[in-house]
């Protein structure tokens, strides 16, 4: 099943075209990495897919249900109710975590399922603790974000996304704000999720990680998808000149 389908997405900021005619499909269980130089539109694509930015034109479906329609070359968004339903399909892990500083770890993770999804409090707390344990941070449930290291905060952020039971997870450069020795731990957690067949779209600069976990790598530059395919094709044998230049710069 196609979990995500984007067709002909265009996005401008003022006069500047950031995304030109992007189309992208993600199948259930697939892990897709998006790589590319900064300013290429990777993050904007992710923000459009998660409704943090509105699309100018193009259409978008979740679970083969059309959410954003394209009418007369303009994107049209549905009612609040439909949007709320669509929001429940995905989770997003931010580059700088964005944990709620006034809530402790357990409340950060469990508040949305209890308050927004109106799930049973006891079972949510139980599940939150289980996930925190799985992610390796169960001893910190009473700590506040300011008392945690960056790596620990990002683990909590991943747990917070997982407790919502999303169909897929987006990661926006999840390790860019972390020290190198902490990065490995987070990548290991994500690799674990990939092995459990979690559908993931990851914007990243970690080429080795992308090669190791991705089913597909997408290379973006200048607001378009330049090349996509299996990691061994795109990363190790890029066909396009721009991809080659980018990868060469990274390896130097």
């Amino acid at each position: 099943m196609k979990l995500l389908e984007i067709n002909n997405l265009q996005k401008k900021f003022g006069d500047k075209v950031v995304l030109k005619d992007i189309s992208l499909t993600v199948e259930k269980g697939e892990v897709v990495s998006i790589i590319g130089p900064s300013g290429s539109g990777k993050s904007t694509l992710l923000r459009c897919a998660t409704f943090l930015e509105t699309m100018d034109s193009g259409e978008l479906s979740y679970c083969e249900e059309k959410i954003v329609k394209n009418e007369n070359g303009k994107s049209v968004y549905p009612s609040k109710r439909v949007m709320k339903e669509a929001h429940s399909k995905f989770g997003l892990v931010f580059q700088n975590f964005n944990l709620f500083p006034h809530y402790n770890v357990l409340k950060n993770v469990s508040d949305a399922p209890i308050r927004v999804m109106k799930r049973n409090k006891e079972s949510v707390l139980e599940e939150s603790r289980r996930i925190l344990k799985k992610i390796g941070i169960d001893d910190k449930e009473n700590a506040y974000p300011c008392e945690l290291s960056g790596g620990q905060q990002q683990r909590v952020a991943i747990a917070r996304a997982l407790v919502m039971n999303p169909d897929m997870l987006y990661f926006d450069e999840p390790t860019s704000a972390l020290d190198p020795e902490i990065t490995a731990g987070i990548l290991r957690v994500m690799k674990g999720l990939a092995e459990e067949k979690m559908t993931m779209v990851i914007v990243t600069h970690e080429i080795d990680f992308a090669r190791a976990v991705s089913d597909r790598v997408v290379f973006m530059d200048g607001g378009v998808i330049v090349e996509q395919g299996k990691p061994e094709d795109v990363i190790d044998n890029p066909k396009n000149e721009r991809t080659r230049t980018f990868l060469k710069k990274l390896s130097l």
Partner: peptide
Amino acid sequence: EAAAILGY
């Protein structure tokens, strides 16, 4: 943004 993603 975090609140929006979580559906608040």
